[in-house]
Amino acid sequence: MTDRSSTVAVVVLFPDLLGTYGDGGNGLVLHRRLQWRGIASDLLEVPSGSPVPETAQLYLLGGGEDAPQTEAARELGTDGPLHRAVEAGAVVLAVCAGMQICGVSFPDNQGRPQEGLGLLDCVTVKTDEPRAVGELLVDADDRFGLPPLTGFENHGGRTRPGPSATTLGGVRAGVGNGDGTEGVLADHGDGRGKVLGTYLHGPALARNPALADVLLAWALGMAPADLAPLPEADAEADALRAVRLSAATRGNLDGVAHRTWRDRLTRRS
C-alpha cells in the first residue's frame, strides 16, 4: 500500500470471537499512531457474521477460546476476503489464537487438527506440555531492527514454523512457539502483504511501540526510520518496558521487590 494520500483503514477482525486478551488494543495503538503523525485513519471493528472488507491496509486478529477460534477460521476460510486483501498488499498482525488459525492447521477444542487459513507456514499442535502462561521476552530477529519484545503469553498449543517461515525472534524468557523461537512471519516479497503471527499479548503493540511502527511502515510501503516522529515521546511505554523486561528476566511478575508473608497467607487460591 503506497497510496499515502488516502485514509489508512485498520480492521479489528471478529472482536466477538478473538478479543479475549485485550488484543483489540492493538487496533487502537495503530490508529492513534497514524493520527498522531497526521495520517488519516479509520479504525473498524468487524464482528463475526459481517462482511469482511477487502480494501483495508491493516488487519488484526486477537486471542480467543478454542470454540470461537474454530468458528473464526471457518468464517475466514482458505480463500476469502482476508486472503484477497493480503494478495493486494495488506498487512496482518495475528496474535495467539489468531496466529494459530492463520497457519496450515491448528487443534480444535477436542485437539483434532482443523484446516487453517494458510496465510502462515506453520502448524500448531496440542502436546502434553503444560499451558504456557506468563511473561514472554523475545529477542527480535535482526531483520526487524527492533529492541527486545515484551508481552504476556497464555496458550496451550505449540507452533511449529515450516520451511518457508521466518520467525519473529528467539525466546529469552517464556515459551513462545515452544522450540525456542517465537512468532511466524510470511514475507513473500512479491507485492503480497506481510503476515506476522505472535504469542505476545499485552497487547503486543502497546508494550512494543517500535513493533507497531514496523507494521505501519510495512502498510505504508516505507522504512520505519522514514515515519514522522510522534509529537510526544512514548514515555509511558518506555517506563512500562523497563519494568516488564526486568520482571521477565528476574521471574518477578509483580515488578515489585518482594511478596510478603501476608500475600502468601491470604491469597485467594
Binding site: 486478551y21 485485550g22 488484543d23 488494543g25 515489585v256 485467594r268
Partner: peptide, 30 residues
Amino acid sequence: ARIADGRDPSWLWDVPYERLAGRYVVATGE
C-alpha cells in the same frame, strides 16, 4: 496484577477509559 487479580492486566484495553476524558487521572498500583 497479583495472583488474586490475575497476572495479566491486558483487560485494561477492554475498559472504556475514553469515558474519563475531561478528568485528570493518576495511575498508581504495581
